[in-house]
Simulated assay, not measured.
Amino acid sequence: MVNPWRGEVAVTLDGVRHRARLTLGALAELEDALGAASLVELVERFESGRFSSRDVLMLIVAGLRGGGWTGTAEDLLKVEIGGGPVEAARLAAELLARAFTVPEGG
């Protein structure tokens, strides 16, 4: 079970649920991998709908790594993400949102 208070999101890879969250280390790795000048730039890409499939992939990888997964972007290319590309994009946006907001009721 994921904990939204910790910014966690569930990602299903080949039918197996994994915990994903954007830790500070994962965010730094993400900025570097995407060549983003800042996290604000990355958030703006998603808010404006100007994100790429690479943005989605790298966000999912960073989140999974923040959740303890030891795979790489290359590994993620070889698995099926539950819900397909649309769900992957939604999860990537949710990871970003949860990294910078407090869940309702808190």
Rank of each mutant, 00 (worst) to 15 (best):
V2A: 12
V2G: 04
V2H: 08
P4G: 04
W5F: 15
G7H: 04
V9F: 07
R19Y: 04
R19K: 07
R19I: 12
A20N: 05
A20K: 04
R21L: 12
R21Q: 15
L22W: 09
L24V: 07
A26G: 00
E31W: 06
D32E: 14
D32G: 09
L34G: 00
L34F: 08
A36F: 02
A37V: 15
E41W: 09
R45S: 07
F46R: 14
S48H: 13
G49I: 09
S52L: 14
S52A: 10
S53A: 08
R54H: 14
R54G: 11
D55L: 11
L57H: 07
M58S: 00
L59P: 03
I60T: 14
I60A: 07
A62M: 02
A62H: 07
G63K: 07
R65E: 11
G67M: 04
G68V: 06
W69M: 04
T70W: 03
T72A: 05
A73R: 06
A73Q: 09
E74A: 13
E74Q: 10
D75P: 09
K78Y: 11
I81R: 03
G84W: 10
G84T: 00
A88W: 08
R90S: 04
L91I: 09
E94T: 11
L96A: 05
A97F: 12
A97P: 00
R98I: 00
F100Y: 01
F100H: 12
T101I: 01
P103V: 01
G106M: 11
